[in-house]
Amino acid sequence: MKPNFSLLSRLIVLQCLSVLCCSQDFDFFYFVQQWPGAYCDTKHSCCYPKNGKPAADFSIHGLWPNYKDGSWPSNCDPDSVFDKSQIEEVIGNMEKDWPSLSCPSSNNLRFWSHEWEKHGTCSESELDQREYFETALKLKQKANLLNILHDAGIKADDGFYSLKRIKEAIKKGLGFTPGIECNVDSRHNSQLYQVYVCVDSSGSDFIECPILPKSKCDSQIQFPKF
């Protein structure tokens, strides 16, 4: 009896594809920064960390592994829990650049633990826990959004600016097109909330985003004071 090479070939291809998919954990990162003024003036309000009110600057929300089809992995390793000792050397920078604004007021550890366990564990093929947080801090230094916008005449003064102008300013400053997320304040104004920039899977370099999150912004958005 002749072997069924067609079936055998299909099985081999499927096996290879399975191995390939398993070896490719994610395609790129979203590096997400949020504007505290937009976080705090919604109906949910905010609470400052126990170490005090953060600076009037964009802060890190997260470094999130993503796939090119728009989906993303999460909670990839239940056994890899957040360990504060891994970030002791950069705790001061973490408190400055990655503060929690959620209520009740906290020492930030709950926020950082959530980010590691939901997102960071999905990057362990590239970054261990210490490297994950240090990488995000380095990206924050490279993407100084407040300076970029200020240089373009866009200031956190409660003024309204065109969404197009904000995107163009950030693209000019970083070299790549950002994703902009808006939220709504208590007066129902659309306002600048979060900025998404894409990073290669090693966490080293900014790249053009394979896919951007859907924007729910008005054409003119407010840049609220903080």
Rank of each mutant, 00 (worst) to 15 (best):
I180M: 01
F133S: 06
K164F: 12
T177R: 04
H119T: 01
C122R: 00
R187P: 01
S113W: 09
F160W: 05
H150L: 07
L163V: 06
I170Y: 05
S125E: 14
L146H: 09
N183V: 02
G120M: 01
E124Y: 08
L163T: 07
W112F: 02
F133V: 07
L174N: 00
P178G: 04
S125M: 13
N108E: 11
K171P: 10
L139Y: 01
V199F: 02
Q194H: 04
R130H: 15
Q141L: 12
S204H: 14
K164E: 13
T135G: 11
E168H: 12
S113I: 12
Y193M: 08
G159R: 03
R187F: 10
Q129D: 14
D128K: 15
K118Q: 13
D151A: 08
Q194F: 02
T135M: 06
P178H: 05
Q194P: 03
V184S: 13
I148R: 00
K164R: 14
S201L: 07
N189I: 14
L127K: 08
D151G: 06
W112Y: 04
N108S: 10
E115D: 05
Y193S: 03
K155P: 07
C103V: 06
C122Y: 00
R130L: 11
K172A: 13
L163M: 08
S106G: 13
G203D: 03
F160R: 03
N107W: 15
A152T: 02
I170M: 08
R187L: 15
R165A: 10
N147A: 08
G175Q: 08
F111M: 11
L145T: 03
F111S: 05
G175N: 13
